[in-house]
């Protein structure tokens, strides 16, 4: 049970908050990276739809390679150091079996981007629940830095999650 308020984030959003708040979202093939600063009791979460920004349109955080560095920057701006950060990664399911989204393996590419970028920043992934065929609801509790996760039916995942 969380003590503070819980902020729900949608695709393309980044939210950084402090204990005792919580951040939550719903994921299908999208991925959410949760960063937690163990010293400051501060955490942040993003929620991205696609792995790469292709140079067209605005550099929106709906792309993993835009969103993850921005999340890290947001944490650093509020006093974190990359070495005091730990990451938890969720989502990247193969939701649309048999159609083009699956053949493009969006979920897997989303996961790969998270791992590569976190490796670049030398931020270790301490927990993950990725891939598979189920959507996920997650709630990032900033009081303890723990993530509560539930699998959900495909029908409960909105479009673009």
């Amino acid at each position: 049970m969380i003590q503070g308020c819980s902020t729900f984030i949608h695709v393309g959003q980044i939210h950084v908050d402090t204990s005792p708040s919580a951040i939550s979202t719903v994921l299908g093939s999208c991925v959410a990276v949760c960063l937690y600063d163990t010293k400051l009791g501060m955490g942040g979460m993003n929620h991205y739809l696609l792995p790469f920004w292709n140079g067209n349109g605005l550099q929106s955080p709906k792309f993993g390679n835009i969103s993850i560095p921005k999340l890290i920057e947001a944490m650093i701006m509020r006093g974190s150091l990359p070495k005091t950060l730990v990451a938890k990664v969720f989502g990247g399911a193969s939701i649309n079996i048999g159609n083009s989204a699956n053949t493009m393996m969006i979920g897997e590419k989303n996961i790969l981007v998270a791992k590569e970028i976190l490796k670049d920043y030398k931020i270790s992934i301490v927990a993950e629940d990725i891939g598979g065929q189920n959507g996920r609801k997650i709630q990032f509790n900033l009081e303890r830095g723990k993530v509560q996760m539930k699998y959900i039916a495909r029908s409960d995942i909105g479009e673009g999650n």
Binding site: S6, F8, S24, K146, Q148, K150
Partner: peptide, 18 residues
């Protein structure tokens, strides 16, 4: 005022903690 769409998260009692 109360964190949007929080109704989706009414219960995490039987959730997996990571």
């Amino acid at each position: 005022a109360y964190g949007s769409n929080e109704f989706l998260f009414e219960s995490f009692d039987d959730a997996i903690e990571l």
